[in-house]
Every structure is written in C-alpha cells, then in structure tokens.
Amino acid sequence: MSILEVKNLTHTYDGNTPFMHDAVKNVSFSISKGEVIGIIGHTGSGKSTLVQHLNGLLKATEGEILLDGVNIWENKKNIRAIRSRVGLVFQYPEYQLFEDTVYRDIAFGPKNMGLSDDEIANRIYEVCDLVGIKRDYLDKSPFDLSGGEKRRVAIAGVMAMQPEIIIFDEPVAGLDPQGRANVIKMINDYSKRYNATVLIISHNMEDMALIADKLLVMNKGELAIFDTTENVFRQHERLIRMGLNVPIVTQVMLSLKQKGIDVPDNIFTVDQAVDYLLSLKQGGNRNA
C-alpha cells in the first residue's frame, strides 16, 4: 500500500503570460511507507517545485496528490492538517528561526497543531534527544548558536510535529563535513524511530548512496528515472548526460574498469569499495 501517490502532476508558472513555462511536467510516482527516497536533478529541473506540491504549498495546474489514498485538496480547510502529516524542511531552514529561545522555536509547529503544553514539552525533549540538542540549549536564543546548531534546531522544529512523511530540500547545503554527517544521521534516526517516509533533495551523490533506498531523477521538469539507488547509479552515462554524476568512488571504479581491471559496477560507497578491495587482497591478486 503506497502512502503517497502523485498522479500526472503538472505545474505551470506564470500561466497566460509570455513567461509561461512548465516547471513540472506530467510526473507520476508512488512511495511506500518507510522508504527513503532521494530526489536528484540538475538546477532548475523542478525538484523544489515538485516537493512543494506534496504538502499543499503549491497547487498543481493538473494532476493530483493522494495521501493514504485521499486527495490532499479534498477538503481545503484540512490543508494545515496535511502539512503536519507531510513535513517540509526548506533549504537553509535556519533562516526561518524567529523565537527568543530554542524551546519556543521548536514549539512553533506543534503549537500550530493545537497540542497541549505537556504534549509539546514531551515532543520537544524527545526530538532533542533524537537530534542531539542538549537540554541547556533550550533556553538559549537560537541566534547565538553556530550555523550547524541552528540548522539542527530548525530541522528539529519540523521533526517535533512528527510528520509521517518528511521532506528535506538540500538539508546539508553549506555545512562542514561534521555537520553534514550529523544531519544525515538525524534523518536516518528519525525515519527509523517513527517508521517515517523520507524524501531528500540533494546534489551530493555520496550522501544519496548512503541513505536512499530509491532515487527519483528529475530532468527538465520531467521524471526521468525512478528506481532503486543501485539501478539508477548503474546508468552513469545517462546521468552524466543530464548534468548529474555518480558517487566519486563509483567514478574511480568505472575508470579502473576502463583500464581493463575487472571490478563490479555496483560499488557506491567507500565502505563497499574497501570491503571489495580487501576481499581481493585476501582472495589473491586476480587481475593486478
């Protein structure tokens, strides 16, 4: 049973003006509960436009979005309830912080859902443990934190709403390697803890290889490929034609292969590569 189904979604910007163009063209796909989906695509391929439809921030020009089999626009007054079920973390979410304490900023989402103060407090402590915000941070001003910490607080603000589906638009953009690893871990932990469905937009193929079960490839507003991460990364030539690429370790393996060394083409993470190369060493030099 798919939790989210997108049917023939088309979004036209600036309709009836000379600037009219389709940002998303006839996109259909469905996602099962608990899956982690990576969305990749060249800049301007319609990724951000696509995900803003999933929680009703944008209304499709054509097509529909079914959440648990029900059109999200079936009852217009319910759209805020839909937004608490489908969380969306925008790019650079730290720019949306506004409260005077971290606690109150994280509480903004749950409060809008109409939860009781006790329930809000419970959720905040839960999410802080999950994402690694220390308790004594809760009374600080979010503007006194470092960039990576701000990002963590902003993401916690959406996670505290405990959405069944959570969407991240380039969650690691502009972070240092430590911050990136933290955010990826947060996302992983959240999806495991709540059996949540996750969609991540990212340009970083290494992160995608680590975290995504499936990849959704957008090209010029159209859905180009939707398949398991392994099957997508196998089509490296097609990806390169779309201005995308495969993880660096896969590129290394591919160039080894071009040099005539027989290596498998399903190595996408450094760990896989290490394992494979070690097994070569143990099994004797087959090719080298």
């Binding site: 803003q52 929680n55 921030l57 805020r80 937004r83 608490s84 969380g87 969306l88 973390v89 925008f90 979410p93 720019y95 949306q96 903004f108 989402g109 809008n112 859902m113 603000g157 959406v158 709403m161």
Partner: peptide, 13 residues
C-alpha cells in the same frame, strides 16, 4: 515568499 512558505510548512495560519 520563501519564509512564508517555510512557516506555512510548520503549520502557520
């Protein structure tokens, strides 16, 4: 527009 969308995504009315 971006900030409005971000706060709407957090349930702002």
């Amino acid at each position: 527009q971006k900030i409005m969308n971000a706060q709407k995504a957090r349930g702002a009315d």
